[in-house]
Simulated assay, not measured.
Amino acid sequence: MQFGEILDGSFQTIRRNAASMFGSALIVQVFSAVLLGIVTVAMLQMTESLQYVESDLDMEEFLGPFLAWMAGLLGVTVLVGFLGAVLQGVLVVPVSRSVLNRRTGFKQMWKLAGRRILPLLGVSALLTFGGMLAWAAVAGIAVLLVTAMGPAALLLVFPLGLGALVVFLWIGLKLMFAPAAIVVERTGVYDGLLRSWQLTKNSWWRIFGILLVVTIMVGVIAQIVQIPVTLASEAIGTVVTPHPDAETASSAVVISTVVSMAVAALVGSVTFAFQTSVSALIYMDLRMRRDGLDMELMRLMETGADPEGIPGGPAAPLTTPPGHRPTA
């Protein structure tokens, strides 16, 4: 598949399976938005209380809630990343079925993906917490360098951070198809990671280019949608309360934040479904190039075998559904 075919296939897949793909992404995005909203409101309240800090004792009392907020923000970030990795594996089901023009309902998608939920949870946790620990190690090294060398350590910290980013990006892309391999090919956690690493061999730059262009596209579209909403909420707040007191201004900020996050959840569900669809089609394309998956898909198309399964998995028996006649 070429780049244009992957984009068109992603749009067609979402349109054909809107309930399963968009609905699942929306549930996760709304849940994430609620958690982030709680953390954001807590931050706004702490910002207001900061202006009343006048002594070291007040600062010590403020430090406890601040550390709790930082821990909450980190926890929400990790949870959102974990749920995203799980959903990436789940959404490969309607994408792979859509290659054969098979629709997938919400319940059917989760039923098919549920058979592989334990290894999918395992690889998602491994990728999420592994990445978090790697970045924590880099941050710890940077802190030690700054503590030992002072400002001169920046000459080492900057290339260290840049190098860590490159390595993290390279490894992350090499392992990004592990959830898809676990669900479609019914592998274990280790085999799924190894399978993803093998599939991306000699294709890293092509995959990176496609994902980079898609990320820029959805980022621009999301900003275009968010800017009018932000301006409208600020304008409404100015008109309704032109001279607000501190309490009213705080309420207006909270309402504006809630509205912005609601819109962000809606837009995020669409962009996440699209990006996941693109990733799943790249996975299918890699298997066509390396495993001859296109021949297997043609066999399934002609025979109609395994109509309720996931195309691309272990070979299904050649059973023909009632009323279906294979083409000559």
Rank of each mutant, 00 (worst) to 15 (best):
P179R: 00
V143P: 05
L120Q: 01
E60A: 15
Q226M: 14
R289L: 07
P159E: 01
L91I: 06
A33L: 05
A246G: 14
L297V: 06
G163A: 09
V146N: 05
V213A: 15
K111W: 09
V218N: 02
S279F: 13
G105N: 06
L199T: 09
V80C: 07
Y52P: 06
A316Y: 05
E48I: 11
I117M: 11
E54C: 12
A152Y: 13
G105L: 04
Q51C: 08
I141T: 13
E61D: 11
M59P: 14
V95P: 07
G192R: 00
S279I: 09
M70H: 11
L36F: 13
G122M: 03
E247K: 13
L169R: 13
T320Y: 10
V270K: 01
F66Y: 11
G188W: 00
G81N: 12
R102M: 10
R16I: 08
D285Q: 14
V189R: 04
G172N: 09
M21I: 05
W197E: 00
P242V: 06
G131T: 05
V267L: 04
V240L: 09
V189M: 03
T147N: 12
P119M: 02
Q45E: 07
G122C: 08
G312E: 01
I38P: 03
G163Q: 05
L26S: 07
E5P: 08
G161E: 00
P326Q: 10
Y190K: 12
G163L: 02
L162D: 03
D245F: 10
G105S: 11
M1N: 07
S269H: 06
L300N: 10
S279Q: 10
R97T: 04
F168D: 05
L281E: 00
S203K: 15
P65I: 07
R290K: 15
R195S: 15
S277N: 02
L211R: 11
E302G: 15
P119S: 07
S251H: 14
